[in-house]
Design a protein around this nucleic acid. Sequence first.
DNA 1: ATTGACGGTCTTAACGCCCA
DNA 2: TGGGCGTTAAGACCGTCAAT
Length: 209
Amino acid sequence: MRVLIGGEIRAARVDRNLTLREVCQAAGVSTATGSRLERGVLEHVDVMLLARMCAVVGLELSVKAYPGGEPIRDAAHLGLLGDFRARLHPSVDWATEVPLPITGDARAWDGFARCADWRYGVEAETAPHDGQATLRRLALKQRDGQVDGVLLVLRDTRQARAFLREVEGVVGSAFPVAGARALELLGVGADPGGSAIIVMPRRTGSPVA
DNA sequence: ATTGACGGTCTTAACGCCCA
DNA sequence: TGGGCGTTAAGACCGTCAAT
């Protein structure tokens, strides 16, 4: 990234017929530092210095945090995915952390189940919340993921039940197949028939969340 | 005009000591 | 035992200067 921004600063500087010395003088750094910054050889670039250099050559530095890749998964999440996978028929091809088929798109399916004539993206949520936002996110992933449907897998916890109550009125169109029925069909290697929310039972000994 | 080498300065992590 | 403080060493930044 620092190489990219440095290159942009250099391009803007050249475009405006400014010398490195002029730009560095205005930004308050030595020409050596300015040169290093433009070439991206500074390991730890001062953001304020970057902003000054950008300003001098007529650029505006914009910094913002965006949702990126998937968060680090915990043992509960892996356990939930493992339990779900154990219910699949051996003929079902299973993969985890499958990226969406869009170049540069950081999103990925937690799991991916497919047979010869159907394919489903699997999302596991150990602490589901904000039902509306979750449904929107999954709708977009289904649209972009080129799948026949989405299987949202939850653990049977108080939080999950509250989540299901929250989305009860709107979930029918997005997830038309009953979770138990989808799980039953997947267990025999059949197409679940559409998107479904599947609630997995708590593991023995697990406290109610 | 630009870049590389060198050295000074600064920051920070690690460690030990002291005290409540 | 844990927090605060001072010391020390390592590493990184950046300016100066010489070379291209």
